[in-house]
Structure formats: structure tokens, C-alpha cells
Amino acid sequence: ADRGYDAQAVIELVRSRGGCAHIPTQKDRKLQRSVDPAIYRQRNLVERFFCKLKHFRRIATRFDKLARNFLAAVLLASTRLWLRAYESTP
């Protein structure tokens, strides 16, 4: 699914904001970009975090109308997830 984001516009957007896109190229491209496997593997942590974050009903359905209230709910849910992970470590 990550190869679906291999559009030049997406890569340029990431680059314009000071980032480096680690998106694998589609197989039919003539010029293949190299992707660092270690960095690419870490994306799994981010994807799992967002999946856990969507388990909070308030965030998944976006109850809050104001962006600041939604951000506050995301921060509270993120803190709760972090505390749950922090407590379970020995």
C-alpha cells in the first residue's frame, strides 16, 4: 500500500517541509529510489500508534468541532496510551 503514495507531488510536499520521503517506488518506474530498510521498518510503530489512537471513540468520530479541543483529546489519548505502555515495561 505504501507504493501507492509514490507520487512526485507527495514527495515534493515532504521535501518542501524539510523532510525526506522514505516511500518505496512503484515497480514500473524507470528510476528506483533507495529506501533505508531500518527507517522503513520503524513506520510500523507509527501505524500501530494511530490504530490504537482510533480506538478512542471521541477521536475516531471527531466529536469536537474546534481544532484545539480535538488536539487536546488527541494529547490526552496519547498520554493514556503512553502511560499504559510505560506501566507494562519491567
Rank of each mutant, 00 (worst) to 15 (best):
A1M: 15
D2V: 06
R3D: 05
G4Q: 09
Y5D: 04
Y5P: 01
Y5W: 07
Q8R: 08
Q8W: 00
A9D: 05
A9E: 08
V10P: 00
I11H: 05
I11E: 10
L13S: 11
L13C: 08
L13K: 13
V14G: 03
R15F: 01
R15C: 06
S16K: 14
R17M: 10
G18R: 09
G18M: 08
G19A: 10
G19H: 04
C20H: 15
A21D: 02
A21I: 03
A21K: 00
P24K: 07
T25H: 06
Q26D: 02
Q26F: 00
Q26W: 00
Q26K: 15
D28E: 13
D28L: 09
R29K: 11
R29W: 04
K30D: 09
K30Y: 06
L31D: 09
L31Q: 12
Q32S: 07
R33I: 01
S34C: 07
S34A: 12
S34K: 11
V35K: 03
V35I: 13
V35Q: 02
D36L: 06
D36M: 02
P37Y: 01
P37L: 05
A38V: 13
I39Q: 07
I39E: 03
Y40Q: 10
Y40D: 06
Y40L: 04
Y40K: 06
Y40P: 01
R41H: 03
Q42H: 12
Q42I: 05
R43H: 08
R43M: 05
R43Y: 03
N44A: 10
N44G: 07
N44F: 08
N44E: 09
L45P: 05
V46H: 03
V46M: 04
E47P: 03
R48A: 08
R48N: 11
R48S: 10
F49Y: 09
F50W: 06
F50I: 03
C51N: 15
C51Q: 12
K52E: 13
K52N: 15
L53M: 06
L53D: 02
L53H: 01
H55C: 12
F56M: 09
F56D: 09
F56K: 09
R57M: 07
R58D: 02
R58K: 10
I59D: 05
I59H: 04
R62K: 15
R62D: 07
R62H: 11
R62Y: 01
F63D: 04
D64G: 00
D64K: 00
K65G: 08
K65R: 14
K65Y: 01
K65D: 04
L66H: 07
L66P: 00
L66K: 12
A67K: 14
A67N: 12
A67D: 14
R68M: 12
N69C: 11
F70C: 06
L71S: 11
L71N: 14
A72H: 11
A72W: 04
A73D: 11
A73E: 09
V74Q: 01
V74A: 08
L75S: 14
L76H: 02
A77I: 06
S78T: 13
S78R: 04
T79I: 12
T79Y: 07
W82A: 14
L83V: 09
R84W: 07
R84N: 12
R84S: 11
A85H: 12
Y86L: 15
E87K: 14
E87A: 15
E87V: 15
S88Y: 08
S88C: 11
S88P: 01
S88F: 02
P90T: 13
P90G: 14
